[in-house]
Amino acid sequence: MIHTLHIETKQRDEIIDITPKVSDLLRQEPLEDGLAIVYCPHTTAGIAVNENADPDVKKDILMRLNEVYPWEHPKYEHAEGNSAAHLKAITVGSSQTLLVAGGRLVLGRWQGIYFCEFDGPRRRQCLVRFIKG
């Protein structure tokens, strides 16, 4: 079964911790051991696993991505004007595969799963699939 998370973003660039939502979905599954695939079906957003203890890490990530991929650039040619969002999304990636053991997500002590918005605010979806292993 593929689960759908509905996410409302509020800013152009935003990193949202979806770890609790993915964990809630896992509790609904009869899965002790296997995989969790978290996928973003959008070309201007992505999925990342990174530190979730210090909120400044999210700010630093967005700051650096904005430095590398500024919103305005004289050589961008994409007609929609959101080339920076596409570049950020391809850098972050569209999915993450995580281990499940003992009915829980296997994450490092400081890790969390993030939905990364780069062209908001928008209504987004995130798809989650659990596979018995």
Rank of each mutant, 00 (worst) to 15 (best):
I2R: 13
H3P: 02
L5H: 01
L5S: 01
H6F: 09
H6W: 03
H6T: 11
H6R: 12
R12M: 12
E14G: 07
D17Y: 03
D17E: 12
K21D: 15
V22H: 07
S23L: 02
Q28S: 14
E29G: 01
P30R: 11
L31K: 04
D33F: 11
G34D: 08
L35E: 04
A36D: 01
T44L: 01
G46K: 03
I47A: 03
E51Q: 12
N52L: 00
D54A: 09
V57M: 10
K58R: 15
I61F: 13
I61C: 03
I61V: 14
N66D: 12
E67N: 13
V68D: 07
V68M: 14
P70G: 10
P70W: 10
W71C: 09
E72G: 06
H73P: 10
P74Y: 02
K75W: 13
G81I: 00
H86W: 06
L87E: 08
A89I: 03
S95E: 14
T97G: 04
L99H: 12
G103F: 02
L105P: 06
R109V: 14
W110V: 03
W110P: 08
W110T: 09
F115I: 08
C116E: 10
D119M: 05
P121A: 09
R123I: 11
R124M: 06
Q125V: 08
Q125M: 11
I131T: 13
G133D: 14
